[in-house]
Design a protein around this nucleic acid. Structure first.
Lengths: 346, 346
DNA sequence: CTGAAAGCGCTTACAG
DNA sequence: CTGAAAGCGCTTACAG
């Protein structure tokens, strides 16, 4: 720990610069720069003198200026949907860790699912000249980023594909995961299975619905119109959809597949209030799923891997790699815990 | 949406500058600056010509350079313990929202509970010249920030107090919350209550233990040595401590108070494996606490308010306010859900 | 209404 | 081994 600077030399609210240090030490600006950056070619004596001045004045290099000259900001931007959403926590952290190993800081922000806000944020990050951008898309038209990408902004999309532009994207296997989850229910004897998911204009939601249909088709099971309910994940909408499927007089479903974790949680609440047991498999894992009764069977995605792979791809590009834009799909894992193994009632 | 720039004028990987725009439009640099910043004193005709050049070249102002000249970076730093911890999600988001209303970006990172890493991150943010710093402390000695604060870096600590320096801090009422939670158990007839919390060198953990002792003392209840188990929150340690208290031959506890949400979750698992019902109150709310059986009674903190108040304090200082460093304590809320209202067995 | 010059705090490219 | 000059891309302060 350096000795505390003599108060007489410190001025409140004023930052000493390299120029100040140079004057204080009686050396040239460049010599201070050499010492600060541990460049060779400074006698130990000079170095010591400069170091003393640095401490006396409380100097800390202004990386913001450094970065302007160097051309790289050693920071990357991450646009996510909601900083407070537990699903994105591990993804966020994984991106941060990769950035850290590359000496870069992370600037991030929430789009709040608003395409316009996503655009503003992403462009603000471009204006700051972050070295690269990781985007979890809220909108479905990313042509606004084309000039930036052409100007050299490395960009990788995660969780959902980019819209109307050609760019790297890292996704979970929504189709395969949903298909496996629904096949699991079929394997446990269900023939009437309901699907409740997010708005179908969201890519992942559409893929999961497609996975549901594929599993049903592969088992030669018909799908009644009333069994699929894509739409808002608002609890009221989800609960009403579930009740309708479960209480249908002619063809009540005996099992439900939830398109994401918010839907799953709502369905757990709905089912807890009912007497007849209903099987449930949800897309996305969530904390404490194993502590519920029954414990909830899920199709788990690896959110941390999503972030890690995306960030690594970004830094590969920053290091000069110029592969064609690619779609990287990560596998999901079915985690049987109880709710998905309940046999059909009756 | 602006028309796409003519490809011939765009150069891959090269950013046009104001100088380029000025040359293209046949005007001076300052005129471009005026148009970009919407400053008055430009004829509509000139403005139009400049705007056309901006679009033709795909110019976007380099805010990184702007910021160097302006002196403020319009960004704030947030050092938290773990970007992936659900508890910090709402805090993170709240800080972001406040920053957003002030036109600032958020740079954040995890200390991973490592004081050295906290220090590196905080100082890296200072070197970037963020306008201010919000820190969730990992260490207990923050004197390393003294020169920065003296140089004008606005700094606010959250969730835990700063160590050995005088600075603003925003805290939840750990003492009062724990006292209320334990008093709640006492009110439901318990006389032998166990406390399992985090390491006592963590300020919040110590305060919660103090709250436990205060509630017991106020009810004139003795506290056996074996009933308090501060230490690691590792599930093994916590489970062992709980088993020991519950199985004590002479004075088994009939209720447990958990010092934070990680402890609570472990205790839920321990209690689920037992037959005799045991009352439980946990510090910190967590998702799905109401869906467990019994639903878990908690002392809830308002993590979003913690972040909001801290960030607002920071921006007040950035706006010129110079109040003395203050400790702001936010109230907690007891949320009875079932587990805390179980009467003593026998 | 418009623009040339200086400067923000560094690094780069050179010269001694 | 050391340092003066130019420049990164803007804004500020000023002059016309």
């Amino acid at each position: 720990m350096p000795s505390a600077p003599r108060p007489s030399e410190l001025r409140y609210g004023i930052r000493p610069t390299m120029k100040d240090v140079a004057a204080h030490a009686g050396v040239g600006l460049k010599t201070v720069s050499r010492v600060v950056n541990r460049e060779p070619g400074v006698t130990p004596e000079t170095e010591h003198r400069v170091q003393a001045s640095i401490e006396a004045l409380g100097f800390r290099r202004n990386d913001s200026a450094r970065v302007l000259r160097k051309g790289r900001t050693a920071s990357i931007g991450l646009v996510l949907e909601d900083l407070a959403d537990p699903f994105y926590g591990p993804l966020n952290r994984a991106v941060e860790e990769v950035a850290r190993t590359h000496g870069a800081l992370l600037i991030n922000g929430s789009s709040a699912e608003d395409p316009e806000r996503e655009r503003e944020l992403a462009l603000a990050l471009c204006a700051r000249r972050v070295d690269g951008l990781v985007v979890i898309p809220a909108g479905d038209d990313h042509r606004y980023l084309e000039p930036e990408i052409r100007a050299g902004m490395a960009t990788v999309f995660v969780d959902r594909p980019a819209g109307r532009i050609d760019a790297d994207v890292v996704l979970s296997d929504s189709f395969g995961g949903a298909r496996a989850g629904v096949a699991h229910l079929i394997a446990h004897g269900h023939r009437r299975i309901g699907f409740i998911g997010d708005h179908p204009h969201i890519h992942t939601a559409a893929e999961r619905l497609r996975g549901y249909r594929a599993a049903m088709a592969e088992a030669a099971l018909p799908v009644a119109e009333a069994w699929t309910a894509p739409g808002s994940t608002a609890p009221g909408r989800v609960a009403a959809a579930a009740e309708a499927m479960l209480d249908d007089a002619a063809e009540p479903v005996t099992a439900l597949f939830a398109g994401n974790n918010r839907v799953t949680v709502t369905l757990v609440r709905v089912l807890a209030a009912r007497t007849r047991p209903v099987a449930l498999v949800g897309f996305d894992d969530f904390e404490l799923a194993d502590l519920l009764r029954p414990a909830v069977t899920v199709v788990a995605q690896d959110a941390a891997a999503l972030g890690r792979v995306a960030a690594e791809r970004l830094f590969d590009r920053l290091a000069g790699a110029r592969p064609a834009a690619e779609r990287i799909v990560l596998p999901t894992t079915l985690v049987p815990r109880g709710s998905g193994e309940i046999p059909p009632a009756g």
